[in-house]
């Protein structure tokens, strides 16, 4: 009798993160355990994306993948890897993130109610605009920009832009109808959600304006039902290996998207100038300070963690 892990399928089944990332990993698990462990995706979401974590804790789903940021406030520590200018190559960043998790975050008891099989990041966000190019903070003034995180929203508001919130589901509607003038978003999401025809200008922010942290987690009781040997076999396919695999997949598709958008836009796809970048860095400075304070409150050495993460990235050439 095989152990069947029910996977909460809330993301589109045709997306590469599923077809090239998780589904092949599910197949590897089945092969490595000789069919004693199977993963079965649900036909539609069993729990909404912001309840991924709770669903696995409560046994509603056995296995879930999802961004930490969908439940704001619950995973304050991961906000560090979502800081701007830090995610150049999501694959390398994900290796660093996994090690950071093992050394600094896991010991705090974070995600203690579940078994964590991967921690990865997604590609950094750029500035995508409908009509006008953005080359300085002043260009953002009075522009309606959809923002993915409160941090980006706060900074944009400070510089006179109009931050607009809205789900990814509404992105197409908002962009195509001009409800927003632009959005902070990664290139791969723009092509992934097929809204590239509404984007006429892109300003690439090296290292990203933000990024998303994500987990792969399994229900504890279900995990205990798997034999020790099979658990070891699954762990071998997971952890740093799976984290890197997911991150690298993001980087690969981000580069593909970048080339596709560049081919379409030509010079209208630009890198942020050093002057613009300096302006942005100054504007985002308080975000890093805020995270360090938050980390201190949770009893971890924030400065040490940040240095560890940066050193890992420097070692792998990830930033």
């Amino acid at each position: 009798e095989p152990v069947v892990l029910r996977y909460n399928q809330w993301f589109p089944t045709g997306h590469w993160s599923q077809t090239e990332g998780l589904y092949p990993w599910f197949a590897e698990i089945e092969a490595a355990t000789e069919g004693r462990v199977k993963v079965e995706p649900s036909a539609k979401p069993i729990a909404p994306p912001n309840r991924n974590y709770q669903a696995v804790v409560d046994g509603v789903a056995d296995l879930a993948w999802g961004p930490h940021g969908y439940t704001p406030g619950v995973f304050p520590l991961t906000e560090m890897v979502e800081l701007p200018f830090i995610t150049e190559d999501a694959g390398k960043s994900s290796v660093a993130f996994w090690r950071l998790w093992e050394n600094f975050f896991a010991p705090t008891g974070m995600q203690g109610d579940v078994v964590t099989l991967a921690m990865h990041v997604t590609s950094g966000g750029n500035i995508h605009m409908r009509e006008t190019g953005v080359e300085s903070l002043a260009d953002l003034k009075a522009q309606k920009i959809r923002v993915p995180t409160p941090t980006v929203g706060r900074v944009l508001k400070d510089v006179g832009a109009v931050p607009v919130s809205g789900s990814l589901g509404e992105l197409r509607e908002m962009l195509s109808r001009g409800i927003i003038d632009g959005t902070a978003i990664s290139d791969e999401l723009v092509t992934g959600f097929k809204v590239e025809q509404y984007v006429k200008h892109v300003t690439r922010i090296p290292g990203g304006l933000y990024s998303n942290a994500a987990f792969v987690i399994v229900n504890k009781a279900k995990w205990e039902k798997i034999s020790e040997a099979d658990r070891a076999a699954i762990l071998k396919l997971s952890g740093e290996t799976l984290s890197e695999k997911m991150g690298a997949l993001w980087h690969k598709h981000d580069l593909i998207a970048r080339e596709a958008i560049k081919a379409e836009l030509g010079d209208a796809y630009r890198d942020a100038s050093p002057a613009f970048l300096a302006e942005l860095k100054a504007a985002f400075q308080p975000a890093e300070v805020a995270w360090l304070e938050q980390a201190a409150k949770l009893g971890i050495d924030g400065g040490g963690a940040l240095n560890f993460y940066r050193a890992e990235l420097a070692r792998s050439g990830g930033n």
Binding site: P72, P76, P150
Partner: peptide, 11 residues
């Protein structure tokens, strides 16, 4: 549960 998690809203 939400209180134990320390969950907030985005905005």
């Amino acid at each position: 549960t939400s209180m134990a998690y320390g969950e907030t809203f985005l905005f």
